[in-house]
Computed example of a mutant assay.
Amino acid sequence: MIRIGDSAPVFALPDADMELFDLAEEIGRHHVVLYFYPRDNTPGCTLQAADFSDHETDFAKCDCIIVGVSPDDCLTHAEFRDEHGLSVRLLSDEDKEVCQLYGVLQSRVIDGVTRSGLVRTTFIIDKQGVVRHILSDVSPRGHAAEVFKLVSKL
């Protein structure tokens, strides 16, 4: 389980354009908002991604990049991005390895069947690669503003 003050686990994942994003390359260069979301094109995920995209320049003024991660594939991410005019980088974690690494998967029993689902979670990582804030089970509405307040204090 990742805690505030821990070094963020590094990883590399492909984005919507199938270009590799490597978190290790951002350490020392940018603060990183790393948000995990369940699926492209659902109402909450669309709202969250659009809100982050709408405020991306504000985050950039704080030397911060925003990266979204879900188990959807790169093609689905590209369609999602293009359909909604999103500018934030969306990463594909089809094997859910990074989701497991960051502890955002949760098992629930529904009608006697155990299912694993992704809990909407945001990690704020500073330039030194340290996890400064963790927001779990977040509501998409107003989340970008809440995260921006935290980032602006780094």
Rank of each mutant, 00 (worst) to 15 (best):
F52C: 07
Q106R: 12
T76N: 13
R39E: 07
L135Q: 10
R3T: 02
L90G: 00
P43Y: 06
I2R: 09
R39I: 00
E25R: 11
N41K: 13
A12N: 12
H77K: 08
Q48V: 01
R89I: 09
E79R: 12
P9K: 11
Y102L: 13
L150A: 06
D95S: 09
V67C: 13
E94L: 09
V109G: 00
V119Y: 05
D17Q: 13
A144N: 01
G28H: 08
K127T: 08
G103R: 12
V10T: 15
I124P: 05
C45P: 02
L86E: 01
L47Y: 03
L86K: 06
Q106K: 13
Q128H: 10
T114G: 06
E79N: 08
A49P: 02
S107N: 15
C74G: 03
G85F: 07
S53D: 14
D93N: 09
K149N: 15
I4K: 08
D72V: 09
R89W: 06
P43I: 06
P14A: 09
F123T: 05
G68Q: 07
I66G: 03
M1T: 11
P43Q: 05
F11E: 09
N41V: 04
D40A: 15
R132V: 08
E146V: 01
T76E: 13
E19L: 14
D137P: 00
L105E: 09
L154W: 03
V109E: 14
R141D: 06
F123H: 00
E25Q: 15
S116K: 11
V98H: 03
E26P: 03
I2G: 01
L154V: 01
L118I: 13
S107R: 14
R108A: 11
F36K: 03
D22W: 00
A144D: 10
I65M: 13
Y102G: 04
V88R: 01
R120Y: 12
L135G: 01
I4G: 04
A16P: 00
C64W: 01
D40I: 04
F59G: 04
K149G: 13
D73L: 05
D126R: 07
D51E: 15
V33Y: 08
H31W: 03
I110S: 10
F123Y: 13
A24R: 14
V104G: 08
C45E: 00
P14Q: 07
H30N: 14
K127C: 05
A8C: 09
L86V: 05
K153F: 02
A145Q: 14
T46V: 06
D111A: 13
F80T: 01
S7D: 10
A50K: 14
Y102N: 11
I124Y: 10
R81H: 03
I124E: 09
Q106F: 11
I124Q: 08
A8E: 04
K96D: 07
V67M: 12
K61E: 10
E146Y: 04
V147C: 01
G28A: 10
T76W: 02
H55W: 02
T57K: 12
Y37I: 04
I124N: 09
G85C: 09
L47Q: 11
H30S: 14
